[in-house]
Write a protein that binds this DNA or RNA. Structure first.
Lengths: 223, 223
DNA sequence: CAAGTACGGTACTGGACAGTCTAGTTTTGT
DNA sequence: ACAAAACTAGACTGTCCAGTACCGTACTTG
């Protein structure tokens, strides 16, 4: 209809087939995130992507395949954006400041509406698609906590943290920061996500508690 | 068929109608928890409860009503078992011990398989039934944290804790203890729930961190 | 430009399922 | 004992939906 005049390279690259494929994926993500697996029908996906149902089934063999592709794509993609580009803290950086920034960044990514909807979707389908939940756990919390555990271990080696069990410390740090807002958003909807400045305060409080337990005596500066 | 010989009082009390009603509720809980809202059909509920479909619709007007009744019943019921019967710690009690016990009890209740399945179910249906999620949040984490905040406030008044903001302290305590195992069980299934002794260790570690941040200088005993 | 492939539109199949209807049976209250 | 109320079994309606078939058309490629 609207892009009949874009023979080879419209706005996005790739051949016609590849373009259709992307359109289907985009539409399917939207529709699945809105309605869940059972609450979604393939006609709606076809209509929203401006493609015939036949084409949908040519590209993805079944509703189930399409669903799995959408979800795995989103989970692994989201995990990549958080890690892979957090600089190690320099020797003379303020450690508390570094941890606050890290916490805040993590919060803003995970609380993205689409990621919250993905999380709800996957959790609701644990019984039907246990593999997807496993992948989400691996690419989400498990991955983040492994990265943090490595960092804490190095910082303990430097003498900048007092951490005997890096994995436990990483879990404590992660959930001190993430648990409250994630749980709220999970149950109360995306409108329950606090505004940025409140998230920053929340991150600060979490870091304060973490450093009180794992800092080198400087956790509570006063007194 | 089998209970034709129990005229008035079979095993459970109540008239025939009340007994049927309970049977329907039990069956519906099982089936909804297993298959989710859309994944459940009313014929299965009728069959499992040993009752005709007509009777199901006499007692509960629709699939939706039945679902709402099941879920609200479970959420409020579960909240009650945790609170309402935690004794205040006595003056000469060991506070750390008291908090460990409290944390461990909370863990064992929340990690019950049925409660985990309920949580997944409700989260997966947030878009369709936002009210249910609100109720679960209110009767679950919110209620627990309010109770804890009250306790911490009193302990701060006693000089046994160093808590300026009881609500934040309660959130930190709650999630230090609950977040990791609950999140694991949520995504990895009920088999990922750690055995009791590991839960106890986990509760201990959470309490240790909490007291390091909020205790009266005695958080980290060494040094 | 011709042959082959991908796509659109649409109708169709087969099955599932919420909720209703009917007619006969059991239970209960009085 | 008897009438009202509750229950049973199963057929039935209307609807929705995954996946397929068919055929004409647009695009791609040699």
């Amino acid at each position: 209809m609207s892009d009949t005049q874009n023979p080879p390279g419209g706005a996005e690259g790739g051949g016609r087939s590849a373009r259709k494929r992307r359109a289907i994926l985009d539409a399917a993500r939207e529709v699945f995130l809105r309605g869940g697996y059972l609450g979604t029908n393939m006609d709606e996906i076809a209509a929203l992507s401006g493609v015939s149902k036949q084409t949908v089934y040519k590209h993805f063999g079944s509703k189930e395949s399409l669903f799995v592709e959408i979800v795995t794509g989103m989970t692994s993609g989201a995990g990549d954006t958080v890690h892979e580009r957090l600089p190690e803290p320099a020797e003379d950086d303020d450690l508390a400041e570094y941890l606050r920034d890290y916490a805040y960044r993590q919060l803003t990514v995970v609380l993205t509406p689409d990621l919250m909807r993905l999380r709800r979707l996957v959790i609701g389908e644990v019984a039907r698609f246990p593999e997807l939940a496993r992948v989400l756990h691996e690419n989400g919390p498990a991955r983040a906590m492994r990265a943090m555990a490595g960092l804490f271990e190095r910082l303990a080696g430097n003498g900048r943290l007092d951490v005997a069990d890096p994995a436990t410390a990483a879990s404590h740090f992660n959930w001190l920061v993430m648990a409250e807002p994630v749980n709220r958003a999970m149950l109360l909807g995306d409108e329950a996500v606090p505004p940025p400045e409140e998230l920053r305060r929340h991150a600060e409080e979490g870091v304060r508690v973490f450093l009180a337990a794992y800092g080198r005596g400087s956790g509570r500066p006063a007194e």
